[in-house]
Amino acid sequence: MTAQKKLDHVLLLAVVGLAAWAVPGAGHLLIKERLRAAIIFVTITATFVTGLYVGSIGVIDPVGAKPWYMAQMLTSPAVGLLGHVTETAVTADGQQRYVSYGRCSDVGQIYTSVAGLLNLLCILSAVYMAYCGRGEMIGEEEHDG
């Protein structure tokens, strides 16, 4: 492999990894694994949205629940925007506007964090598939089949 090809390959891996982080399933889409990408996108998005619905956006708490927030951030960088909203939105008396307590908070936090961890698995899977050259081999087979 020439130096230029090696650099292109590393760039491809970086782009696939970043795309997979930005939008769940986008990494697989880039390497032509369309069905896999659709399944991953729908499942991870549904899990994350269910978590938000159950516990409200208050479950994204960059200050009081940092470890959970780190896992949630793996779903997409867009979670950072939600974190910024929950962090900065305060009521007139200085209290946080979006808060969540109790069982619904637990369930919401677990759902959103597991969605992030599942996306980490998908990021690694997409990068590994790109590393093995899957976009050139199996992607075509899948499309043809």
């Binding site: 896999r36 991953i40 499942t43 991870i44 549904a46 899990t47 599942l118 698995l121």
Partner: peptide, 13 residues
Amino acid sequence: PLLLAIAIVYKAT
């Protein structure tokens, strides 16, 4: 539902 999501994503990868 969470177990189902985990099973789907795991098998998809």
